[in-house]
Computed example of a mutant assay.
Amino acid sequence: MAQTDLVITPVSGPIPNGADMKAFIDLPWRLYANDPNWVPPLKAEVKELLTPGKNPFFGHAEAQYFLARRGGTVVGRISAHIDRLALEQPVDQGMGPGTGNFGLFEAEDAATGAALIAAAEDWLRAKGMTRVLGPISLSIWEEPGLLIEGHDHPPTVMMGHNSPAYRAMIEGAGYAPVKQLKTYELDITQPFPPLIQRIVQSGEKNPRIHVRKVDKAQFDKEAAIILGILNDAWGNNWGFVPITDAEVAQTGKKLKPIVFEDLIMIAELDGEPVAFMMTLPDLNEAVKPLNGALFPFGWIKLLSWLRKPQCRTMRVPLMGVVQRLQASRMASQLAFMMIEYIRRNAVAQYGSTRGEIGWVLDDNQGMNAIADAIESRVNKIYQIYEKPI
Rank of each mutant, 00 (worst) to 15 (best):
L280W: 00
L280Q: 04
L280S: 04
D282K: 03
D282Q: 02
L283P: 03
L283S: 07
L283H: 05
N284M: 10
N284D: 12
E285M: 06
A286P: 04
P289H: 12
L290D: 01
L290M: 13
N291T: 09
N291C: 08
G292C: 11
G292W: 10
L294W: 07
L294G: 06
L294V: 10
L294M: 13
F295K: 14
P296E: 10
F297I: 11
W299L: 15
I300L: 15
I300N: 08
K301N: 10
K301D: 08
K301W: 07
L302R: 15
L302C: 10
L303Y: 06
L303A: 14
S304I: 04
S304P: 04
W305V: 05
W305G: 02
K308E: 07
K308Q: 14
P309N: 05
P309M: 02
Q310H: 11
Q310K: 08
R312T: 14
R312F: 02
T313R: 05
T313V: 10
M314H: 03
M314F: 07
P317Q: 03
P317T: 06
L318T: 01
L318Y: 03
M319L: 14
M319F: 11
G320K: 01
G320N: 00
G320E: 02
G320A: 03
V322N: 00
V322I: 10
Q323I: 04
Q323K: 13
R324T: 12
R324Q: 11
R324A: 09
R324C: 03
L325V: 07
L325M: 07
A327S: 14
A327Q: 13
A327V: 04
A327G: 10
S328Q: 09
R329M: 14
R329W: 08
R329P: 13
R329E: 13
M330Q: 12
M330S: 11
M330R: 05
M330D: 13
Q333I: 05
Q333P: 00
L334D: 00
L334Y: 08
L334A: 08
A335C: 13
F336L: 14
F336R: 12
F336Q: 11
M338D: 09
M338H: 13
